[in-house]
Structures are given as structure tokens and as C-alpha cells.
Nucleic acid binder design. Structure first.
Lengths: 142, 142
DNA sequence: TCGGATACCTACAATCGCTGTAGCTTCAAG
DNA sequence: CTTGAAGCTACAGCGATTGTAGGTATCCGA
């Protein structure tokens, strides 16, 4: 029987985050001690580890919910899980492509800046004048 | 004298976003028409274009605030602006590295999945068992 | 067995960078 | 002068946490 703190430590999760997962129904309501504290077993540990791993792979909580449903019904076809992972892979590849474009432009900015005064600073200038920009940044969002 | 809608169109920004930037002090409070509607000039247009471009390069609003302060004082040294850009470049490079690791792992997951039932599904399995994981995912955050 | 440190509890607010809504007023074209 | 688009304020919501305040439980050493 694990306390929430132990579970947190084992899975590299914050305590608050575990309670949040419970609140949104991603983790089940666990047993409680006499005093009302949460007590977890191995199942919950595994489930949380699954969630965290998927999060680290960049899956949204919605996708994780789907994957958990799938994992709970092992008789179904693999296709659904696979398509979620493929969607995720495509998203990761898109993000990489976008970031590589940003990297190019930032490198150029930094490289061209030769440490005079701000009046001639390439960094400021490039930001000021979009037309100098090679990158197609349509809709980036961090 | 530009309306907020025109400004939005010219810079590819939503009207709400412009008002939000004003609210957090990133854009100045503009003049108003007799009826109380915002009227902008060229300065504000340039400033907003600068902000949007920096956002597209992934700069946080805090960093943009710094860059704008710097841009307003062209006599100072360029070093501060350069170091902000370099920090940004490093962050982008880190993100790329992390995403590339994810891509590798996702590719492996997807590739190994050969369309049986979920009981043998690599996608689920890899997520379940972190020890199969090649990636160092310290703190990813999408 | 007691005391105190630590961990836990609930409930709620804040983060970041917007975006959407409701209910009203102003503007510009016909 | 009318009408419809665009503007106004104020506020709520997103996703995925994280932090706070104020109180309770648990555990370990003395």
C-alpha cells in the first residue's frame, strides 16, 4: 500500500498532478486509509507509469485516455492504438520541421550580430522587418 | 489612423490578442475615436509586427518585452539583445534534440506493430514498460 | 506513549498565451 | 436614416499542471 507521495516519487510525478489525474478521471479513486489518505496498489502504479510515459512522448491526455481504454481491452485489434501512435509521430515530425526552420533563422540573427550598438543590431532589425525573413512561419505557437 | 480590425488583418493577429497585449502592457494604450474605439498609427503597427514576428520565432512574451525595451534605446550595447536571441536558439536546439529522440521511439513503436490483437501490441507494450525506452525524457512539455 | 516533523487533505487561484462569449455601442456605406 | 459590420467591456475557458492557505494524519525517535 503506497502513499501518494511514494507513488509520486516512483513515477516522477508531482503529488498535485496525481490528484489532478484523479479529478479528471484518468486515475481511479483509490482506497483510503482510516484517516482518509489515499492508498495505492501496483495496478495504480502501473497505470500512472503508463500515463507519464505517454506524456513524455508528447501524447495529449485525451489520446492517453484512449490508449488506456485500449490497454484495458486487450482482445481488440491493434489498429486503433497504432493509429494514435502514428498521428503522434506525424505531429512530432511537424514540430521538428518547424523548429528547424526557427533554428535556421535564429542562427542567422545571432551570427550576423557583431556586437555594436542596438542601432545596428541584426537581432532587433530582423525582428523589426519581417521581409528579411526566410522562414515561412504560418501559425507556430511555441 | 487604423482601426483595431485593420491592424489585426495587417499583422495576422486576432483582435482579441491585440487587446490582450494592451492589457498586459506589451502594446501601449492607443488614441481613441470620439466614440471610444481604438485608433492606431504606424508606430503601433510596427511594434505589433515586431511582437508577432518574435512570437513566431518562439520567443516568450517576457523576452519580447525585453527586446522591445532594448529596441527603444538604440544607443545601448547590442549584447543584451544578442544574448536573448542566443538563449532562444539554445532552447530551440534543445527542443529539437528532445523531439528527435521521441521520433525515434515512436517510429520504433509504430514499426514494430504488426496488426495483431492488442495483447501483442507494441504501442501499448512500449508505453507500459518504460525500461524498453531509449529516450532520456527529462521534462518534455510538448 | 508523546511530541514534533513531515506528509497528507480539500478547495481554490494562478500560470501562459491566447480565444470565445454575451450584451451592448459605434461606425461607415447606401 | 437605416442597417449591418465591427468595435466595446467584462468575464470565462482552454490544457496541463503548479502553488497556496489552512487544517489533519501519520510516522519515527526519545
Amino acid at each position: 500500500m503506497l502513499s501518494i507521495g511514494t507513488l509520486a516519487r516512483e513515477t516522477g510525478t508531482k503529488v498535485q498532478t496525481i490528484r489532478y489525474y484523479e479529478q479528471i478521471g484518468l486515475m481511479p479513486e483509490p482506497d483510503r486509509s482510516e484517516g482518509g489518505q489515499r492508498r495505492y496498489g501496483r495496478d495504480e502504479l502501473d497505470r500512472l507509469a503508463f500515463i507519464r510515459h505517454a506524456r513524455q512522448l508528447g501524447f495529449h491526455l485525451d489520446a492517453i485516455r484512449e490508449l488506456l481504454n485500449l490497454a484495458d481491452h486487450p482482445d481488440q485489434s491493434c489498429a486503433a492504438a497504432d493509429s494514435i501512435a502514428q498521428r503522434q509521430l506525424r505531429q512530432v515530425e511537424q514540430r521538428i520541421a518547424r523548429l528547424e526552420a526557427l533554428r535556421t533563422e535564429l542562427k542567422r540573427m545571432v551570427h550576423d550580430c557583431e556586437g555594436g550598438t542596438l542601432a545596428d543590431c541584426r537581432v532587433i532589425e530582423v525582428l523589426r522587418d519581417h521581409s528579411e525573413c526566410l522562414t515561412d512561419h504560418t501559425h507556430i505557437g511555441a
